[in-house]
């Protein structure tokens, strides 16, 4: 009874896995094909003679290394500032008593229903006044604080025992010192999760950098890629090399830190 059921189950799972992976594997394979090889009938699944020429073209001729650097700068800046600010706020909302705390927190949670895109046009006009349009700083700015991030840290920080903080106060430690030397190490697991989320979101984001950046040398990778396809739509293999270059860093990061990522998703889904 059991054997046929197990075989069927695994067959379905394997078909699903092949379907899910095919676009990604084809992207990788096509990026190593000779020019024109991806446009053949019947389609080639593997490159006849693997070549690195498209990757070379991306770096040497199209200067995509610069866009790679822009993406990295935006994601790293957004992540480091975002993690610090959200950690401070999340800890304060969980553990420090101050008048107005509940009111501010409730307002933030209520504001979660507003999609970021609603304020995008005025935000652009504001950045224009501040001289931040067409700068990487302007692209990274929305990553510096997130309601979801504050919420995630707060949930985690609620479990820190008050005694730990009070003991440090009795020893005469300043509030900042308590945060930096006692609270931050305890928060470490949730901060890794938050950092991973912020980094991936900043790296993958398209609409906001598309709006803010006008100078192609400042484009992040997704914007550069969307721009590149305009001129190179026939160069399938070249475009696939660009796609690999964009996807590979985030996919690798995810595979390395999967545990933390999964935990974050589950924390977010158990909001109420």
């Amino acid at each position: 009874m059991k054997a046929p059921r197990a075989v069927l189950l695994h067959a379905v799972l394997i078909v699903g896995a092949v379907l899910t992976l095919t676009p990604l594997l084809w992207m990788l394979s096509a990026s190593f094909m000779a020019p024109g090889e991806a446009n053949q009938v019947p389609p080639h699944l593997l490159p006849a003679a693997p070549t690195l020429e498209h990757y070379r073209a991306l770096f040497e001729r199209l200067d995509l290394a610069r866009n790679f650097g822009n993406s990295l700068a935006v994601a790293l800046l957004g992540t480091s500032v975002g993690v610090l600010f959200n950690a401070m706020a999340g800890y304060a909302f969980a553990k420090l008593r101050f008048p107005g705390r509940e009111g501010v927190f409730r307002t933030l949670v209520a504001a979660l229903v507003i999609p970021a895109q609603v304020g995008m046009l005025p935000l652009f006009l504001m950045l224009q006044q501040l001289g931040l349009v067409n700068t990487l700083m302007g692209v990274a700015l929305p990553s510096f604080a997130s309601i979801f991030g504050i919420f995630m840290v707060r949930q985690f920080a609620l479990a820190i025992p008050d005694d730990l903080i009070d003991a440090a106060r009795l020893d005469g430690a300043s509030e900042w010192r308590i945060f930096w030397t006692i609270v931050m190490p305890v928060l470490q697991p949730v901060l890794v999760t938050l950092a991973l989320f912020t980094f991936l979101a900043a790296w993958n984001d398209f609409m906001w950098p598309l709006i803010v950046l006008s100078d192609s040398s400042r484009y992040t990778l997704p914007v550069a890629l969307a721009n590149l396809v305009g001129e190179h739509v026939q160069d399938t293999e070249l475009m696939m090399a660009g796609a690999v270059l964009t996807v590979l860093p985030v996919l690798t990061l995810f595979l390395a830190l999967q545990r933390f990522y999964t935990r974050g998703i589950l924390a977010g889904s158990l909001k109420d």
């Binding site: 676009p23 990604l24 992207m27 993958n204 990778l221 690999v244």
Partner: peptide, 15 residues
């Protein structure tokens, strides 16, 4: 099954 979630939308839309 989860891998597509973390990929960059622009890149996979191109694929």
């Amino acid at each position: 099954y989860f891998a597509p979630v973390v990929t960059t939308l622009v890149a996979v839309a191109l694929v």
